[in-house]
Design a protein around this nucleic acid. Sequence first.
DNA 1: CGCGGGGTTGACGCACATCAAAGAGAGTGG
DNA 2: CCACTCTCTTTGATGTGCGTCAACCCCGCG
Lengths: 259, 259
Amino acid sequence: MEKGKNGPDSRGRPPAPNGTAGGADKEGACGVQCADCTLDAICKLLDYANGGSAVPDGVLLRERPVARGETIFRIEDPFRSIFAVKSGSFKTLIPEAGGREQVVGFYLPGELLGAEGVTGGAYPCTARALESSRICELRMERLPETGRPLEALQQGLIEILGREVAFGHALMASLIRQSAEQRIAAFILNLSRRLERRGLAGRVFVLTMSRADMGSYLGLASETVSRVLARFQKAGVLTLQKKQVQVHAPERLADIANL
Amino acid sequence: MEKGKNGPDSRGRPPAPNGTAGGADKEGACGVQCADCTLDAICKLLDYANGGSAVPDGVLLRERPVARGETIFRIEDPFRSIFAVKSGSFKTLIPEAGGREQVVGFYLPGELLGAEGVTGGAYPCTARALESSRICELRMERLPETGRPLEALQQGLIEILGREVAFGHALMASLIRQSAEQRIAAFILNLSRRLERRGLAGRVFVLTMSRADMGSYLGLASETVSRVLARFQKAGVLTLQKKQVQVHAPERLADIANL
DNA sequence: CGCGGGGTTGACGCACATCAAAGAGAGTGG
DNA sequence: CCACTCTCTTTGATGTGCGTCAACCCCGCG
């Protein structure tokens, strides 16, 4: 359980209208620095890290705000860009019969979105913001304009995709065959670790997605998610008030998840 | 219809083999030509396709035989090579608590094994032959010796990994939340299509893995796999004798799987 | 103030895991 | 060539985790 994709972010305030002009809020506390972003290696390569770039405009778009509920790409859209989450959180989903949607991933600050579309020319899923967020966009189709050697860029991509694949395997192993308690324990723990890896708070954070989203992702009914979380709270493993979780005993979660 | 799980692309990694019937494994009739192998683009690039290669020996090892039950790489082994299945079939697995093992993938002729290890420097799972098989091995660490531009090789890798990721998503969507019948129908159908894509027989083939392996992969008990297959047979959707399956009504399978 | 969506909680039933036992090959040894 | 063992498969009986249905609560919003 570990690698990849799912999760919320650690912030706490749901929706700010639009562009919380950063300051008065804790918005600052919940994003990642470039140094903690997965896209950083590529940004640096493009000389974007220090601003004085000779690269044409429009190849890398920095820090665009995205409103809660906004869709940044839709399934079947032609593949254009890879996105890095700078703050906030996203889910990816696949439409299902009957108008339902299956959540296939959650993305936290510092993680990359859309790399799955690099093959096949189209995105295999839809990506939607769970709260008001900020993203960087790397327009793949315009990379050749930069005149940079592609080799290092490709190397970066390979790293990213390789991690996704390995994570996917581990994830499958943890979902299939596990009880509801095990899945949810692993999920919470996973979120916690991913946040900490980026230098964010991993013991106290906000579950930005709905119980139904979690359930869809974990293959459980939202009622079950609710019940299990209540059980965890009763057992003193964590505390939750509304969407905010505080993890008291990560080791007990690990134990439940049988890691 | 609900989740479409395999859609247009359908690559993947489930299981199955094809092959030889009967008791001894002869793998003659069930292999793929180089033209149908995923590694082919890279082989060609190395001039291996036509034999007259200036590339140092030992970079690409061709057609090594592998005995049933043999392990070609183990979890945590340092990453060295990517393997292409030329004939036979493999499973990949992750050890679980309690000595059990979780099957995370099946690999058929023409498919690639081990690409997941390209990141992180180690294989994230163990790969074992389900029957006596043949593989080609591409030693990644020695690629630089070839003096070839890496760009095209990398491009190939990106394609491969991208497909894996997309497939993983679709797979998750199809496993989570589906009934035993749906999972098994989708599984059989997936095998069938993957075989056909490589020019092998997709209506009659051999399930080289055990029911327990299938169950592990699909998140079901082996008894359930057995029962469901029997039910399918009774319904006239397929016939099975021993490990050999004959699919009579792929469209009914698709219907059950709700594709 | 009334409406609607998300969350919690309870009752009920079913699909599937688990336990158990018997049958079918396949490999081994005498 | 025939017992013997071991593994894999099948089939039956029993139990239970969690999905489904339904009611209710809480909160934000128009």
